[in-house]
Write a protein that binds this DNA or RNA. Structure first.
Lengths: 217, 217
DNA sequence: GCAGTTAATGACTATCAGTCAATAAATGGG
DNA sequence: CCCATTTATTGACTGATAGTCATTAACTGC
């Protein structure tokens, strides 16, 4: 009896149907502006059904975030499977990241700026949120891996523990992302334009410094 | 006739009364969880009055943010007035920043995670938001100043334009902040504990690399 | 085909941002 | 001091929307 299995598949399909609708609307209008009713309509389901598949709006947000992280993880994996110097792998990973955030600015803003958790009930964490953290860890691990390769093959010179270096590169990516999201009147943007830089070039400058660091004589 | 002036003062006092109430509640519960009714009650005013002083909840958020930025700006100014090597000034600025965010985590989260703008009506920008940007720019300028001092006195060695370096340090601060706010269960924290590092030490490592960069021979 | 189980529905409730007509307080000329 | 006018304050009301739940529909296996 494959009924259990079929039902499981159907459930997953519904879940996906809802998630896809939510992602599409979020990309168009932002997450805050998207209502559960709209998502229900787009998914061709009633609102009540939404709540059978996602505990609340915040869970749905976490699921969207999870999707994006999975995609990034996949990109990083693909990069890592190439046989190239570690330093190049790191650069390509950061490029993947920049590509992703530039693909849909509304979506990126939504993902980054929603305060999913603001003092959430600490004992009853959504399992999706947990999974997001796990994927984030995995992504970070891939960066660590690339750095280790680079240290081995000599393309990266650093005093830092690869884990710490990966962490700092992660900080920089986040910071750059925030900057990218923020208002255009920001002075940073002016500097940016003055010097005719792209996000990618800025990131490369950063990496050049960090991946080729030697002590001052 | 000092009546106009007195009325002006009273208006400012009201505005401040409201803002203080909002800041206190935000520090306790986060901004999202704080309702306009609660703020009104705490400020001993009716809700309608709140809206005479702040256009909407988002304006109030901007005002809170402005306060925090002013405080940071003041801290940076104080640092800059010392007669010390530029590299040290930069380090002290980042320390001030870390102190501020660690003072009240709920408040910091609220400030950083609220999406004030998500596709705001672009032509009708709140003037408070403008002021926030200006202060942010001023803060950034102080960092640039400190870097220039460091380049002059030889305590900082870098190929980068001081403005760009300040920008990158800014990215790192933002990234570190996000990390501090979001990833409490994340791998980063584990690394942290493994290596027994504080936020400040991590930042210092970063600065050591960036403020003492020489080309590999 | 029918009893029991599972899934889906949408009208309903609760909460909260924001409004506005009514009211109160302050002002200043006579 | 009085009253007309201006300015400030109020809180009941509205509208939007997240989330619920009793009811209905669909499916399952005997």
């Amino acid at each position: 009896m494959g009924i259990k299995e079929r039902k499981e598949r159907e459930k997953n399909r519904r879940r996906d149907q809802i998630l896809s609708a939510a992602i599409e609307l979020t990309g168009q209008q932002g997450f805050e502006k998207t209502t559960m009713d709209e998502i229900a309509e787009k998914a061709e389901l009633s609102k009540g059904t939404l709540y059978l598949y996602y505990k609340d709006k915040s869970s749905l947000y976490q699921a969207i975030k999870k999707r994006a992280l999975q995609s990034l993880h996949q990109d990083f994996l693909t990069v890592l499977q190439q046989d190239k110097p570690g330093a190049l792998l790191v650069k390509e990973m950061t490029s993947s990241f920049l590509d992703m955030i530039q693909k849909n600015i509304t979506f990126t803003k939504a993902i980054m700026l929603y305060r999913g958790s603001e003092s959430s009930d600490s004992d009853q964490q959504s399992s999706i949120a947990e999974k997001c953290l796990n994927i984030e860890n995995d992504v970070n691990m891939l960066m660590v891996k690339a750095i280790q390769i680079g240290v081995q093959d000599g393309s990266i010179t650093t005093k830092l523990d690869p884990k710490l270096l990966a962490l700092q590169i992660g900080f920089q990516m986040r910071g750059l992302l925030q900057f990218y999201i923020l208002d255009n009147k920001n002075m940073g943007v002016k500097i940016f334009k003055e010097q005719n830089l792209t996000l990618g070039e800025l990131m490369d400058q950063f990496l050049n410094i960090h991946l080729n660091h030697v002590e001052k004589p």
